[in-house]
Measured scan of single mutants.
Amino acid sequence: MQIFVKTLTGKTITLEVEPSDTIENVKAKIQDKEGIPPDQQRSIFAGKQLEDGRTLSDYNIQKESTLHLVLR
């Protein structure tokens, strides 16, 4: 499925993911596309910070959902 990741600069990245993917996985995909190390990424969805060990389905993130990426 496709999800979108919006950065603070307003750029939107499209990722191909599975509901079973962990947040860690997703951060690795963002690193592949953007070169941002996962330890600098904070992902926010529906106002909640997403934890690395959880999966997209844990957070009820579905296709075409938009995550927000904040850098630390």
Rank of each mutant, 00 (worst) to 15 (best):
M1W: 07
M1Y: 14
I3G: 02
I3C: 02
I3A: 00
F4E: 03
F4T: 05
V5G: 00
V5C: 04
V5A: 03
T7V: 10
L8A: 13
L8I: 11
T9F: 12
T9P: 03
T9W: 14
G10P: 00
G10Q: 02
G10V: 01
K11V: 09
T12P: 03
T12W: 08
T12Y: 10
T12M: 11
T12I: 15
I13V: 07
T14C: 06
T14H: 05
L15T: 00
L15S: 03
L15V: 07
E16F: 13
E16G: 04
E16Q: 11
E16L: 13
V17P: 00
E18Q: 12
E18I: 11
E18W: 12
P19E: 08
P19F: 05
P19D: 06
S20D: 11
S20M: 09
S20C: 07
S20E: 10
D21Y: 06
T22S: 07
I23L: 08
E24Y: 14
E24F: 14
E24N: 08
K27D: 02
A28K: 15
K29P: 03
K29G: 03
K29M: 13
I30E: 03
I30A: 06
I30H: 02
Q31A: 14
Q31G: 08
Q31S: 12
Q31I: 07
D32G: 08
K33F: 09
K33L: 14
K33H: 10
K33N: 08
K33Y: 11
E34F: 14
E34W: 15
E34L: 15
G35R: 07
I36S: 07
I36H: 09
P37L: 09
P37E: 09
P38Y: 14
D39G: 09
Q41T: 13
Q41I: 15
Q41D: 07
R42T: 15
R42L: 15
R42S: 14
R42H: 15
R42F: 15
I44R: 02
A46C: 12
G47K: 05
G47C: 09
K48P: 04
K48I: 14
K48F: 11
Q49G: 05
L50D: 03
L50W: 04
E51L: 11
E51Q: 09
G53I: 06
G53T: 09
R54W: 09
R54H: 12
T55G: 01
T55P: 10
T55Q: 06
T55E: 01
L56W: 00
S57D: 08
S57W: 08
S57K: 13
S57C: 03
D58K: 00
D58H: 12
Y59D: 01
Y59P: 02
Y59C: 03
Y59W: 01
I61R: 00
I61L: 03
Q62H: 10
K63D: 13
E64S: 10
E64Q: 10
T66R: 03
L67H: 00
H68E: 11
H68W: 14
H68A: 05
L69H: 02
V70D: 05
V70G: 05
V70E: 09
L71K: 08
L71G: 09
R72Y: 13
